[in-house]
């Protein structure tokens, strides 16, 4: 499903802006509400949704997303539940491309081939697995490719040129560039070097979305000027937790509208 994701980036580029990629943790504050949140976020102008699969040991995530995952697990969220949630969103008519974002063990325990088949059937466009660097990616990317589901690779500030060059073989719909070393939501985003982004874009042959530390419409505007996509995660997850469950879809959608507006150039 590379085509829909690429189209999201192409459409944004035609409008002379970056694509807005919105991260939310499935099951936070509970599975039913989180489906409503994603639907509201799609309607509010997110170009791509990253749906986080809660994991008991999220070793690459900061406190906000850790707590969101703990809330989700207590509320009964799971990998099969996240896949079913995407199917439900598609039934509701949500067309926005969805990237399932998670850690490998749940996918491995389900079985990569079974996971790939179920993900494709539900309407998941791509999968981003935090703890599968390109060196270990084949065991999941192979089965996913069989069912037409893409993988999204991560690039870090520490990634060496030879590692970035290996991304070309993936033909990824986009590449996720982590703007700083650290866990999610830890610090304010540092400015990224446009030359570094150009290098990643050229080497991978894919558009580049930048994430980690992008919280406000102002941040989004600044990054929109230099990147192909802007990922906002922790700030949205914090909005989920900032009040009662019933108000969560509206609270999150409000921030997404503000982010989208800030990224639209007149």
């Amino acid at each position: 499903m590379t085509a829909q994701l690429r189209a999201a980036f192409d459409n944004a580029a035609k409008e002379n802006r970056a694509a807005l990629v919105a991260y939310l943790t499935f099951g936070d504050p509970d599975p039913k509400t989180s489906i409503d949140i994603v639907e509201a976020v799609a309607q509010a102008g997110a170009d791509v949704i990253e749906l986080g699969v809660p994991f008991s040991d999220p070793s690459a995530d900061g406190p906000s997303i850790q707590r969101a995952m703990e809330r989700a697990l207590i509320a009964g969220a799971s990998l099969p539940g996240a896949i079913a949630a995407v199917a439900e969103l598609r039934r509701r008519g949500v067309k926005t491309p969805i990237v399932l974002f998670g850690y490998y063990n749940p996918m491995f325990v389900m079985g990569p081939a079974t996971f790939a088949e179920r993900a494709a059937r539900a309407g998941i466009d791509a999968v981003l697995t935090v703890d599968l660097p390109i060196d270990e990616l084949d065991e999941l990317a192979g089965p996913l490719a069989t069912y037409g589901v893409s993988v999204i690779p991560l690039v870090a500030p520490t990634s060496t040129p030879d590692r970035i060059a290996r991304l070309a073989g993936l033909h990824a719909p986009f590449v996720y560039y982590i703007s700083l070393t650290g866990v999610t939501g830890s610090r304010a985003a540092a400015p990224v070097d446009p030359a570094r982004l150009a290098q990643i874009r050229t080497a991978s042959g894919s558009p580049v979305a930048v994430g980690f530390g992008i919280r406000t419409p102002d941040d989004a505007r600044r990054f929109s000027a230099v990147t192909d996509g802007v990922v906002v995660g922790t700030a949205l997850v914090d909005r989920v937790a900032a009040g009662d469950a019933a108000g969560a879809p509206a609270r999150v959608a409000e921030l997404v509208r503000a982010l989208a507006a800030a990224m639209t150039r007149s």
Partner: peptide, 25 residues
């Protein structure tokens, strides 16, 4: 346990296999 992935390596792991908790440690 069964084979799984935790803390950087594939090995035996104590992990749930039922639908509700699939792959949670």
């Amino acid at each position: 346990g069964r084979i799984g992935v935790l803390h950087g390596s594939k090995s035996y792991v104590l992990t749930h296999e039922d639908d509700e908790r699939m792959g949670q440690i």
